Amino acid sequence: MEKLFDIDKKFKHSRLLTIIALLSFAAIAITSIIFTNQNVNDFSRRIYVVNKNRQFEAMVSDINQNRPAEIRYHLARFHELFFTISPDPKAVDLNMEKAFYLSDESVKRLYDDLIERNFFKNMVQGNVNQTVKIDTIIVDASSYPYRAETIFKIFQTRATGKTTKLGTSTCLLEDVVRTTNSPNGLIIRDFKFSSVNTKSSLEYEN
């Protein structure tokens, strides 16, 4: 009888070890499958570009992950193009052409209004050089269309002195197809702009 109990005890012990081993193998198998899938997904997001026998790696990511940064760059680039004015009318026209690719008719209406007021003509004839410096770009990417506000300084340099204006603009942004002229795949809509003089001096320094 004692031998029977001993055999039964050993059988239960073996069964417990077998169950533990099976559970361990199952856990290892599940972990391996998950790890392998993650590696496959990560590898599938990699793009390799070969240029002149040199290999470059790029990563594919969700467009919404980097959207706020792309919006800020899009707005910074647009303001630099639209508000940078040199005494060369051809340079002004080239900047405006590039700016129009990034925006809609609301910007074109602002441009036409400035034309009617002889703004660009007076700037060119007065040999005025205008540049901008972006201070802050506030982006709300939680809703669509995206909303943004840009605060920037406008510096005007002429023979008689230098003037600084504080500019503020608001707009909506929508997704469009990415192109060479609009690499961020965004277009500015409902653009509104206002400015106030902050300083005018012969000795103003940036």
Rank of each mutant, 00 (worst) to 15 (best):
F119P: 01
R109D: 11
Y101H: 10
R109S: 09
S106M: 07
D93R: 14
A99I: 08
K108E: 08
S103Y: 02
L94G: 00
D113M: 12
I115Q: 01
I115E: 04
Y101T: 04
D113Q: 11
K108V: 00
A99N: 13
F119Q: 02
K98S: 11
E105C: 00
P89S: 11
I115A: 06
S106C: 08
L94D: 15
M96V: 14
S106G: 01
F119K: 02
F100P: 04
A91V: 04
F120H: 08
D112R: 02
F100G: 01
P89I: 02
A91S: 15
D104Q: 01
S106P: 07
L114Q: 14
L114G: 03
M96S: 12
L102K: 10
K90F: 11
L102M: 06
I115P: 00
D88S: 14
F120D: 09
F119N: 10
D93Q: 14
E105K: 01
L102D: 04
M96Q: 12
E116C: 03
R117K: 15
K121I: 05
S103W: 03
P89E: 02
Y111K: 13
D113G: 02
L114V: 04
K98I: 11
K108D: 01
A99Q: 07
L94A: 15
D88T: 09
Y101G: 05
Y111R: 10
D104N: 09
S103I: 07
L110N: 09
K121W: 03
F119R: 01
R109I: 11
D112E: 13
N95V: 15
F119W: 09
L94S: 13
E105Q: 05
Y111Q: 03
R117T: 02
S106H: 06
P87V: 04
E116H: 00
P87W: 06
K98T: 11
D112P: 00
F100Y: 14
M96I: 15
P87N: 11
D93G: 10
V107G: 06
F120V: 13
E97C: 04
F100H: 06
S103H: 09
S106A: 07
D113A: 13
D88V: 10
E97R: 15
K108G: 01
R109T: 13
D113V: 12
L94Y: 15
D93F: 14
A91N: 15
L114F: 15
I115K: 02
E116F: 00
D112W: 00
D93E: 14
F119T: 04
Y111G: 04
M96K: 13
D112K: 13
L114T: 05
F100E: 10
E97F: 10
D104K: 09
D93Y: 11
P89M: 02
S103E: 00
E116S: 02
E105Y: 05
Y101V: 03
D93C: 11
A99V: 08
E116M: 05
L114Y: 08
R117C: 00
